[in-house]
């Protein structure tokens, strides 16, 4: 054995750890390239659109706000891990029923895991997205909205968790849930307002969107962060948590039903 002096040892360990992180670095670079590409394209798209309209704002959004809106929504969507992959595994192995008997602890456990993972990834994506945003369109005028972002984001991610859980728990009844999760994600892209703010939607679609939980996930936090609808912050947060409770209840019922089915069938 080679004995290392203490500082040398830490440097050594540090280097090994860093090299193990290379896989993450690669993933990070892929995400950066993707974000850069998408933001560049949307910058071109909105530039052309603003020029075509000949106005400085579209539905109240300036060009800068439109771009930063996209930074915030993309950062959020790219930060969410797949619940279906995880839950499907647990349901198929039967762990879901034996590990955690009560639905509350089952949900709490997964919620804690989900949120901690999301926190790190979201922070990284925000830094990355902001760097790209600064580079392409310059800084966003700092306002009160930005201060509310963390709280709105927590609400948004919680709704997203509940909806994701609803999809994932259907694994009790259907063979494959990843397809469903994929479709759900695509709903977020469109009617959830990831690609463009809901205000730009046709009137009828906007009205439908207001009665659905999808707008609370990325649209609420992003529009607040860019300084829109500042008067409706309390209302928006209340809407988020109302949906959390409602969907949470459905998840709870679904879980109990599912576990009972598992017990009857003997797993």
């Amino acid at each position: 054995m080679i004995s290392l002096s203490k500082p040398a040892k830490y440097v050594f360990i540090g280097k090994i750890t860093l090299r193990n992180q290379l896989a993450y670095v690669f993933d990070f670079m892929v995400r950066s390239v993707f974000l850069l590409l998408i933001l560049y394209i949307f910058m071109q798209l909105w530039q052309s659109t603003f020029a075509g309209e000949g106005t400085s704002t579209i539905n109240g959004y300036t060009f800068k706000q439109m771009m930063w809106y996209l930074v915030f929504t993309e950062s959020m969507v790219l930060a969410t891990p797949s619940l279906s992959t995880r839950i499907e595994e647990e349901v198929k192995s039967g762990d879901v029923a034996f590990k955690l008997i009560r639905p509350v602890s089952f949900l709490a456990f997964h919620y804690a895991e989900y949120m901690s993972e999301v926190a790190i990834r979201y922070a990284i994506n925000l830094i990355l997205g902001s760097a790209i945003g600064l580079l392409l369109v310059g800084p966003l005028p700092v306002g009160v909205g930005l201060a509310w972002l963390p709280i709105m984001a927590i609400g948004g991610f919680t709704v997203n968790f509940m909806l994701g859980m609803l999809v994932a728990l259907s694994a009790f009844w259907v063979e494959e849930t990843r397809g469903l999760e994929f479709v759900y994600n695509k709903i977020l892209f469109t009617i959830g307002g990831m690609l463009m703010p809901l205000e730009l939607f046709p009137e009828s679609l906007q009205r439908i969107g207001q009665w659905l939980p999808f707008q609370t996930v990325v649209y609420f936090p992003a529009r607040t962060a860019v300084g829109m609808h500042l008067g409706e912050i309390t209302g928006a947060i209340a809407t988020q948590w109302l949906w959390v409770v409602l969907i949470g209840l459905m998840v709870w019922l679904l879980y109990r039903k599912g576990v009972r089915k598992l017990n009857v069938n003997g797993g």
């Binding site: 798209l45 052309s48 659109t49 075509g52 309209e53 494959e176 397809g179 994929f182 479709v183 695509k186 892209f189 469109t190 690609l195 463009m196 730009l200 939607f201 046709p202 679609l205």
Partner: peptide
Amino acid sequence: LTVGTMIVNNIVWIIFWGMYFKRFPVLN
């Protein structure tokens, strides 16, 4: 399933562009 998901994936963009052109009829 995979064939279906790919179609759904593309439809998302059709919806996006559909909404876009509803709001802005012509783009350059």
